[in-house]
Write a protein that binds this DNA or RNA. Structure first.
Length: 509
RNA sequence: GGUCCGUUCGUCUAGGGGUUAGGACACCAGAUUUUCAUUCUGGCAACACGGGUUCGAUUCCCGUACGGACUACCA
């Protein structure tokens, strides 16, 4: 295979959607697998929709998930510039070529006139109203107007667009790597605008020209482009690039978790999960949308999860690092059907990856989170706590959430547990433990276990009957890591005072 | 409306003319854990429908239904 060159070509109209991240990921995986190049191209040809900060956001997001760009606006490359707004002249040149060769024409119709045409045709049964071979001779363009009039209009600065002259009825064949051969009659394709009246190209022209010039080998993009792909094939042909045309792969869409339809920000908000990789503040509304990163998703978990939405390796392995994904990835194994976005599975991946972190890494997270709550904790202790908690967390913030109990003594106690488990027997054991626990901090899980063993056998009370009450007294709740370890971390004097407080509040003998 | 694409457990999916249709998430149950979590074991649960083709279709073909995308001087 000749060099694999793929591109991710977002338009800077806002935050990068999670579906966009997946598209970028698939491109990246293919590039890495074949030691090819990953190109970032900014498609900013719509000046009305341009959102400041969006380009930066996209780059930051890609970097966070671990997608490295080989060529793009920042690092440049052999086919710079990589921002379409900076390539205007190039598109103009090819538009002129198409014009000269009779594959395109000038059109002067106003938006009112276009609308009128569509409305007129809409009333006719079965027809789909579009600017095409059947209607263009009724419109104002260089096909219907005399050369003199056209030249005059252009000289006068009358607004015009350049449209592709699509043949009236030919079959265009598109070979899609995921969907196989797709055939469309040109009768269904309209004379798409190639150059807008502001001198900017539309996606259709810019995309074809850039992919050709940048020597893109595979166009991997969302399925929403499939209907216009035949148009692009046609454009390649007209430009004389048919033999250098990239391979196409149209990805199935990400669907909303319940019901039907594509995943939208609205759904995500409703279901309570993020849709953007990073926090995004909408510059118009000033509204903050929380990102996957800030929500506590690890980039490796997110990429693993995303990769499996529409692709699988064909084995039963599910956990893949980004590197492993790169080698395992195959376009042929991408599915055809849209995938519903199941955040529970994402959470599971997150849990799996969080567990691979060392006690030190987890401890660091705990320390900084605690600090935010005004609690100081040294690393060794943080590591111990992290170790005790590591099997119980899904998100990084869970460590501090669950670990707080080691720093903040309970002020109230779970009533249900209290009424069930706080009785003469547990009070006896807990009172004895309070008296006998080594008040110095130097207790270990082993020593405290031995002490408790000693007390329960002496009082002839089965340990199982009092453990719940003991946890209640120590933490105020009914769940948490191993109790002996909990007490060891707490330290003797803290255990003593917490037990004393519990006895005082819940009652004792 | 038109064009195109799609359809295997609730979800992500494997599979493929003859299989007990496999895995994972979620859920449920049991075991372990004194508790919760973990872990382990087990369970629930799917080939949209109707016609063909075939000795045999979930698998191939055609329809239907349902879903989706597109139908802009947006990408």
């Amino acid at each position: 295979m000749s060099e694999v060159r793929v591109r991710f070509a977002p338009s800077p109209t806002g935050a990068l959607h999670i579906g966009g991240v997946r598209t970028a990921l698939y491109n990246y995986l293919l590039a890495r697998k074949y030691n090819g190049k990953m190109i970032l191209r900014i498609e900013d040809t719509d000046q009305n929709r341009y959102v400041p900060g969006a380009e930066e956001y996209i780059k930051d997001a890609l970097q966070w998930v671990g997608i490295e760009i080989d060529e793009g606006p920042d690092m440049g490359g052999p086919h710079a510039p990589y921002r379409q707004s900076e390539r205007k002249d190039i598109y103009q040149k090819y538009a002129q070529q198409l014009l000269k060769e009779g594959h395109a024409y000038y059109a002067f119709d106003s938006s009112d006139e276009l609308e009128e045409m569509r409305n007129r045709l809409k009333t006719q049964k079965g027809s789909n109203p579009q600017y095409d071979s059947s209607t263009r001779m009724d419109m104002k363009n260089s096909l219907t107007l005399s050369k003199e009039v056209v030249d005059e209009k252009i000289k006068n600065g009358d607004p015009y667009v350049i449209r592709l002259k699509v043949p009236s009825s030919e079959i265009v064949e598109l070979n899609d790597l995921i969907r196989g051969t797709v055939k469309v009659s040109t009768a269904q394709i309209d004379d798409k605008v190639l150059m807008k009246s502001d001198g900017m190209p539309t996606y259709h022209l810019a995309n074809v020209v850039d992919d050709y010039l940048m020597k893109i080998s595979h166009v991997i993009r969302g399925e929403e482009w499939l209907p216009s792909a035949p148009l692009h094939v046609l454009t390649y042909k007209f430009l004389g690039w048919e033999n250098e045309m990239p391979a196409f792969a149209h990805l199935p869409l990400l669907l909303k978790p319940d019901g039907k339809g594509k995943l939208s920000k609205r759904d995500a908000d409703q279901m309570g999960f993020p849709i953007f990789p990073l926090n995004w503040v909408d510059p118009k509304t000033n509204e903050l949308a929380e990102g996957f990163k800030e929500r506590g998703y690890l980039p490796e978990a997110l990429t693993n999860f995303l990769a499996f939405l529409g692709w699988n390796p064909g084995t039963e392995q599910e956990l893949f690092t980004l590197d492993e994904l790169c080698t395992a990835f195959e376009i042929e194994r991408i599915g055809k059907a849209g995938a519903k976005f199941d955040i529970q599975k994402a959470n599971w991946f997150n849990q799996q990856y969080l567990r691979t972190k060392t006690d030190e890494e987890l401890g660091q997270i705990l320390m900084t989170d605690l600090k935010d709550d005004g609690i100081d904790c040294e690393l060794e202790k943080a590591k111990t706590i992290a170790n005790a908690l590591r099997e119980r967390i899904t998100f990084p913030k869970d460590i501090a959430e669950l670990g707080k109990v080691f720093f903040i003594a309970p002020t109230s106690f779970d009533e249900k547990i209290a009424s069930k488990k706080w009785n003469d027997e547990s009070i006896a054991v807990i009172t004895a433990l309070k008296e006998e626990v080594n008040h110095s901090d130097a207790i270990t899980a082993q020593s405290i276990a031995a002490l408790l063993e000693n007390i329960t056998t002496r009082l002839n009370i089965p340990q199982g009957k009092i453990m719940q009450a003991l946890r209640l007294a120590l933490t105020g709740g009914a769940s948490g890591p191993d109790l002996m370890i909990t007490m060891a971390i707490l330290g003797g004097s803290e255990v003593h005072s917490r037990l004393a407080y519990a006895i005082a509040t819940l009652g004792g003998k």
